Structures are given as C-alpha cells and as structure tokens.
Amino acid sequence: MIAITSKELIGLIMAFLWPLTRILGLIAIAPPFGNSSIPARIKIAFGVVLALIITPGIPPFTEADPISLSGIMILMQQFVIGLGMGFIMRLVFAAIEMAGTLTGMTMGLGFASFFDPQTRGNTSAIAQFLVLVATVLFFSLNVHHALLIALMDSFRTIPISMTLNSGFDFHRLAIWGEQIFIYGLKLSIPLVTALLLTNVALGILTRAAPQLNIFGIGFTITISVGLLILGMILPYLALPMEILFQHGIDAIQSLGTSVQHTLPQKLKLLPSP
C-alpha cells in the first residue's frame, strides 16, 4: 500500500499549481491563445495539458506552504511572469495593428472600423486584415512552437523561487513597449509614402484645375492606390513580420537574463514542411 503524507501531497500540488499559474498567465493575454472568442474551458484545458508536460522537467524549487504569505506571493509572481511574457507577444500584434491603423487613416478608411474581440475595441479594416495575415504567419512559421519552447525555458532562466526578484526584469519589459511605434511605423512606411505622394499629386492637380471636385475624386483615388500598393507589397510583408516575431521571442527569452544561467540557443522560426 502506497502511503503519502500531507506534506508530500502539498508538494505535488504546488509543483503542478505554480507552473500552471505561469502558463495560464501567458495563455490569458498572448495572441492568438488569449483571444476572447476562445472559450475559457479550452484555455484552461490547454494550460493543464502544458503543465502536465512541462512540470516533470522543471528544476526543483523551494517548498512553501500554499496558504502562507510566501506561497500566495509565489502564486502571484508566477501569474505576473506569465502575463509579462504574453504581453510581449501582444505588443508584436499591436505593432502590426498600428501599421494597419496608420495605413487605413492615410487611405481614408479610418471611418471603416470593426469590433476587435482581442482588444475589445474598434479597429480599422486594414488593421484587421493585417492582423489576420500575421495570425496565419504566426502558425505557418511555427512561432507558436517557439513561444511554447521559450515558455518551457523560462522555468530555467526565471526559476520558481520565494524571492520576488528571481530574474524577471520589469524594466526591460517596459522599455520593449516602445517597439510598438518603431515597428508599426516601419511596416506602414511603403503604403504611407505612396499615399503621401498621391495626396501631393492631388494637391497639385487641384491647384492646376480648381474646378475639379477634390472631395469627389480624392477618396476614390487614395483608396484605390492604397489597395493597389497593399496588394503589391503583401507578398513582401512575410519577412518583416517574421523578424518582428523573432524579436518578440528573443525579448521573452531575455526577461530572465539577469540570473546567472546560460540561455538556450536562439530559436529559429522555420516554415512548416
């Protein structure tokens, strides 16, 4: 007969619960797993399956009473770490969404907005389209595999510990937020430049022929040029988005570099065979 003491039972529960909390924190916010259209039961079941797979390979950590102050603090810490890792991937999609928003406003489609279940707000049609393209690339480039591998490695670089400063760099997480504007602007530069030249040409045409109704033909021309340029550059957006995804994975990995551990080799995003 197998006898298990209460201390051993609590240790087994905590060895599963604390990693599960970090995993659920990432799933709660990281797109596309954190999409509100996905039922909560599916997210919890996915997190439980990942925890069952990851838990046996996690290095041993300090035991603590789950109902004590230290145990509650560890639980909160793991959830915040998971949220931080998912927030970085959310920033990647926010940069792509910002590029679509800038493009849509320049084209004159700023009024054509739809409800986005991810952000629970209104976004432009071009932004929604680019986010859908990014989601397809997210799975076709195996970024979801790289994200899960980075999550598994985080238990080594950011170990579960009773100390609150166990390798999680909040400052680096905040600084990385500026990448939204940098990459959003870089992705939208081709379309914004083409539409800027189109608006300059329309301004010159209006000065040359004042009798033309610029409001009658301006929107049609800018929208047509914008859609044409978008169709031309769409095949070339895969590489910038792949680089953006790679930077996101690298940022997730670098969150725990303040601890003296050797980081794993840089993850490579390879297309599916």
Rank of each mutant, 00 (worst) to 15 (best):
F79A: 14
F115K: 06
L75K: 04
I223T: 08
M241Y: 00
I229V: 15
I214R: 03
E242R: 10
T62W: 04
R22N: 06
F79M: 14
I2M: 10
L130E: 01
K43P: 02
I53N: 07
L50R: 07
N122I: 08
S68V: 08
L244C: 03
R22M: 14
I180V: 15
I252R: 01
I243G: 06
T257F: 09
A30R: 02
A112W: 06
G82C: 04
I189M: 12
P271M: 11
G110T: 05
L195M: 11
F115L: 12
S254P: 02
A94K: 05
N199D: 13
L24Q: 10
G108I: 05
N213L: 05
L185C: 06
A30I: 02
P264I: 09
D250T: 10
Q253P: 00
F139L: 13
T135V: 10
F87K: 02
L147F: 11
E242P: 01
T123S: 12
L205E: 07
A209D: 12
S124H: 03
L195E: 03
F139Q: 07
R90A: 15
R156D: 07
L109P: 00
M105Y: 09
F138W: 14
V92E: 00
P264T: 08
G86F: 02
A174M: 15
M14I: 09
N199F: 05
F181A: 13
H145A: 09
A112R: 10
F33T: 07
R156M: 09
I74V: 15
L227C: 09
L202D: 02
